Amino acid sequence: MGGVTALTTFLLMVIVFGLLGLVLFWAFGIDRRAVPDYTGDDFGLLTEVSAVPTPEAADVLARRLRAARIKVTVVRRGGLHRLMVFPADAPDAKLLLRAEHS
């Protein structure tokens, strides 16, 4: 009789842990996010609006964008200083930077 109880307990534990495993796999098992960017070229939500060769030029352009209340981040990558903004601000930022060059 003791063997039946041990077998029943074992089977119950297998079922409980199996169900727990299925629930955890359902919740966390399949990572649907994009593959991480290990090259350093992906800046998440930010979009590049300009790239200049010197930090001074990047600082001047960043100040112009900030004066227009556009949040900007300057990133140095590949020998260039890139001005990055949120996609919603990209058209205004490009227009402002283009108007400054005209």
Rank of each mutant, 00 (worst) to 15 (best):
M1F: 04
G2C: 00
V4K: 06
V4E: 07
V4D: 07
T5N: 01
T5H: 01
T5A: 13
L7E: 02
T9M: 05
T9S: 06
F10H: 00
L11W: 03
M13I: 11
V14A: 12
I15M: 05
I15L: 13
I15S: 01
V16K: 02
V16D: 00
L20S: 14
G21H: 09
V23W: 12
V23P: 03
F25H: 11
W26A: 15
W26G: 08
F28E: 09
F28W: 09
R33L: 02
A34T: 02
P36E: 04
D37M: 02
D37K: 04
D37R: 04
Y38R: 08
F43G: 01
F43C: 06
G44V: 07
L46G: 04
L46V: 02
T47N: 09
A51S: 15
V52F: 05
A57P: 01
D59F: 05
V60P: 00
L61C: 00
A62N: 03
R63K: 13
L65P: 00
R66Q: 11
R66H: 04
A67M: 02
A68R: 10
R69P: 00
I70M: 07
I70V: 12
V72Q: 10
V72S: 11
L80E: 12
L83I: 13
M84K: 09
V85R: 13
V85E: 12
V85L: 12
F86M: 11
K94P: 02
L97I: 08
A99I: 04
E100W: 09
H101E: 14
H101P: 00
